[in-house]
């Protein structure tokens, strides 16, 4: 129960950060990518603020703790291979992000704002994830 409560609060901090940063606003995200047009550089501040804070926060965490406060161990990805799947997937994601102006982390905190379009986007993302997973499992 304590674990779920802390996850809920941490999710809440994440959601409010996304929302006030402007990441939940596709028009703003698309303008960040439009240097040749109606450029809005705000997202540099989002990425910079998030990255520097996490960089420092992770260092402190890993220095002071051998394990997480509410779990057995740190679940860190061990894969170091840069392969076609990673780069291809990232490229497809980038194209989709450039079309829609939404990424998963930007859209989920916008789900409660009352716009049907956010639900449509998340449904499309879930479809894309589920279909790719299914195809991959069938091929295995």
């Amino acid at each position: 129960m304590k674990r779920l409560f802390s996850a809920f609060i941490i999710g809440g901090i994440f959601g409010i950060g996304i929302a006030i940063a402007g990441m939940a606003n596709p028009a703003k995200v698309l303008n960040f990518f439009d240097i040749a047009g109606t450029w809005d550089p705000s997202l540099i501040f989002v990425m910079g603020g998030a990255l520097v804070t996490t960089l420092i926060g992770y260092r402190i965490t890993f220095k002071r703790q051998d394990s997480p406060l509410q779990a057995d161990s740190f679940a860190l990805p061990q894969n170091n291979r840069i392969d076609a799947r990673l780069i291809g997937g990232a490229a497809i994601f980038g194209i989709g992000w450039g079309i829609a102006g939404f990424c998963p982390g930007g859209a989920i905190p916008a789900l409660g704002l009352g716009y049907a379009s956010v639900w449509i986007f998340i449904a499309a993302v879930i479809t894309g994830i589920a279909a790719t997973r299914l195809i991959e499992e069938k091929a295995r």
Partner: peptide, 26 residues
């Protein structure tokens, strides 16, 4: 506001690692 939002995202990412040992990847 964007910098403040980014810092909050970073705090959430740090707390999720410190408490749950997880990457805050949506």
């Amino acid at each position: 506001m964007s910098l403040l939002g980014g810092i909050l995202i970073g705090i959430a990412a740090t707390l999720l690692m410190a408490f749950h040992g997880r990457i805050a990847g949506m």
